[in-house]
Amino acid sequence: MSDDILFVSNGNGKAIFLTSRAVLVKSFCSLSKTCSFKDSCQSCEIVDAAKSYLMGKKSDLNVKSLDGELSAGIGEYKIGKNVLLKVMGLGSCIGVILSDVSTGICGIAHVLLPGASNSGEAKYAETAIENMFEDMIRMGARKNRITAKFAGGAQVFKHMSLDILKIGDRNAISVEETLVKRNIPILAKDVGGEVGRNVIFNPVDGSMIVKYTKGEVLWL
């Protein structure tokens, strides 16, 4: 057993743990805002459940193990089954997640530009979403079960002389229009603002975790 990715939930909260050699190395917890340990998890019901799972012990809580993680670079998309999906360092870019919770097939796109590409390049919103959608169906996802979540499109510049840097809003609009046109239900979105984001998708419960570069974490 090496490098498990665990999802643990109880009545109060839920958390994703990245592990290395059976040690918890990183967590994304829905309780981090109110937790006195912040990100340096020490001990609580959820952490203890993850630790006992790693030691091969049974726990009272629901602990699920994911089959690895995939990260999409700028202008790429990645699809997988029961894997943790990530896009990191989003400024004006958008992380678009499509998922079919019934089969566990999901995908994430790191959209860079609004509109569509003539040559099928996934850096454009429309092209990325359509190609990813088709790939997921080929992999076994059910067309009418696919739903979407997306986040990003910030305007990180406080003082700006270049209009071209205002591309975040246009990206967000393009993503939303494409999803509406394709009749893909939008379950959650978190766009705009002035702070960069990391977006993570947990296929076990279908939640999108938005971690702002300045610390705040949202589970959507």
Partner: peptide, 18 residues
């Protein structure tokens, strides 16, 4: 100049998009 405080990857992506 245009000014932003964030992780470099998030700042540079609007330039990269151009």
């Amino acid at each position: 100049p245009s000014f932003a405080e964030d992780v470099p990857a998030a700042v540079i992506d609007s330039v990269v998009s151009q």
